[in-house]
Amino acid sequence: MLKDSQDRYGIVSRIMHWAMALLIGLQLLKFFDRINDGEHWVGKTLVPTHVSFGSLLLVLIVLRILWGISQRNQRPEQDPASAKLVKAGHGMLYLGMLLMPITGVSIMLGNGYGLTVFGTELVARGTDIPWAASLGSLHSPLSWALALLIFGHIGMALLHHFVHKDDTLKRMA
């Protein structure tokens, strides 16, 4: 089943969800960069891919938003009692996921570093752009907020699966 249905999410939604979950999980390893100034195996092996994976995530997030809009009338139904909370939670997740790469690119361009993605220079080094650097300064606080939202999302999925014993988690698995 390619598209979403009232019973479960389709293969496109599930692949995008889990691919993004994996990439975001790798991105969150950047928090380890704060330990010993990144001088450990995580900092040396995974952090150098941070900008490339973040750029890939930006593309995936935009595609996933467009896909979600196209599937909005076919999605599994929500419990009416919690539908507004679920939509608000997912809205904040999407906003956070969208703002992270935007503010990340703002750091790179705002500080004149340029932008190289998977070894390809997209924007050459240049002069500082103060407004972009200022926007980029939101990247770190947003990462903490997004991490909390993600852990809340995981917690709610587990609550539905183990406590409510409904099919919420199975719809995306």
Rank of each mutant, 00 (worst) to 15 (best):
Thr45Lys: 06
Pro76Val: 06
Gly68Asn: 04
Asn111Val: 06
Ala19Thr: 11
Ala124Leu: 02
Ser55Pro: 06
Trp131Ser: 15
Ala132Trp: 01
Pro101Val: 04
His153Gln: 01
Tyr113Glu: 11
Met100Val: 10
His153Val: 01
Ser70Asp: 06
Ala145Glu: 07
Met1Leu: 15
Leu29Gln: 07
Met172Asp: 08
Pro101Gly: 08
Val51Glu: 05
Val42Met: 03
Gly10Gln: 02
Gly112Phe: 02
Ala157Pro: 15
Leu28Met: 13
Gln74Ser: 15
Leu158Cys: 05
Val163Ala: 09
Thr45Cys: 14
Ile24Trp: 02
Asp37Tyr: 10
Val62Cys: 08
Asp33Phe: 03
Lys3Ser: 15
His40Trp: 07
Met97Trp: 04
Ala81Ile: 07
Gly110Phe: 00
Leu159His: 14
Gly155Tyr: 01
Arg72His: 14
Leu58Cys: 11
Leu159Phe: 08
Lys165Asp: 09
Ile154Gln: 08
Ser70His: 13
Ile150Ala: 07
Met1Phe: 14
Gly152Arg: 09
Ile11Gly: 13
Trp41Phe: 09
Met108Lys: 13
Leu135Lys: 02
Leu56Cys: 04
His160Val: 06
Ile69His: 08
Leu60Thr: 00
Pro130Tyr: 02
Trp41His: 14
Met1Tyr: 06
Leu22Gly: 10
Leu28Val: 15
Leu85Val: 12
Leu22Glu: 13
Ser13Arg: 05
Ser140Met: 04
Gly89Asn: 05
Asp33Ala: 11
Phe31Gly: 05
Met97Asn: 00
Pro76Glu: 07
Gln74His: 11
Leu22Tyr: 05
Leu85Tyr: 13
Tyr9Arg: 00
Ser82Lys: 15
Ile35His: 06
Asn73Ala: 11
Trp67Ser: 13
Leu115Ser: 04
Met92Ile: 02
Gly89Thr: 01
Ser82Glu: 15
Gly89Val: 06
Trp18Tyr: 14
Ala173Thr: 13
Ala145Met: 14
Lys165Ser: 07
Ile35Asp: 04
Ile102Asn: 03
Trp144Ala: 14
Ile15Arg: 04
His50Leu: 03
Arg171Tyr: 01
Trp131His: 14
Ala19Phe: 07
Gln71Met: 13
Leu23Gly: 11
Tyr94Thr: 03
Asn111Trp: 04
Met16Arg: 03
Asp33Gln: 03
Leu93Ser: 11
Ile150Asn: 06
Leu93Pro: 01
Ser55His: 08
Gln78Pro: 05
His161Pro: 01
Leu57Ile: 15
Thr127Val: 09
Asn73Cys: 09
His139Tyr: 12
Asp4Ala: 12
Lys84Trp: 10
Leu58Ala: 09
Leu2His: 14
